[in-house]
Amino acid sequence: MKIQIVVTGRGYDAAETLPNELTLADDASLEQALLALEEYFPDDRPLPPTCLLAVSGRHLGTVSQFQSITLREGDELTLIAPVAGG
């Protein structure tokens, strides 16, 4: 199955090399999606632990602590690295 990937927030420029979608096994979990995604990040710029996670608009926590769910075809995985600039 395929899911859409949206990475934004602080350091979003690191996401410009990421794919817009990931191909995963059917019924893959959110953890599996994150593990697949981490491979695309440079070693020196991993996803921050405080990065917010949402699937198809549903807030699930942060990269370091989240509610695991089973993903579905066409889901949109959104990762927002916290921003505070004023």
Binding site: V6, T8, G9, L52, A54, R58, H59, I80
Partner: peptide, 16 residues
């Protein structure tokens, strides 16, 4: 949470 990514031209909305 409404996120507007002007560089990528994308708006996201999350139910917190």
């Amino acid at each position: 949470l409404l996120s507007y990514d002007g560089r990528q031209g994308r708006i996201s909305q999350i139910n917190l």
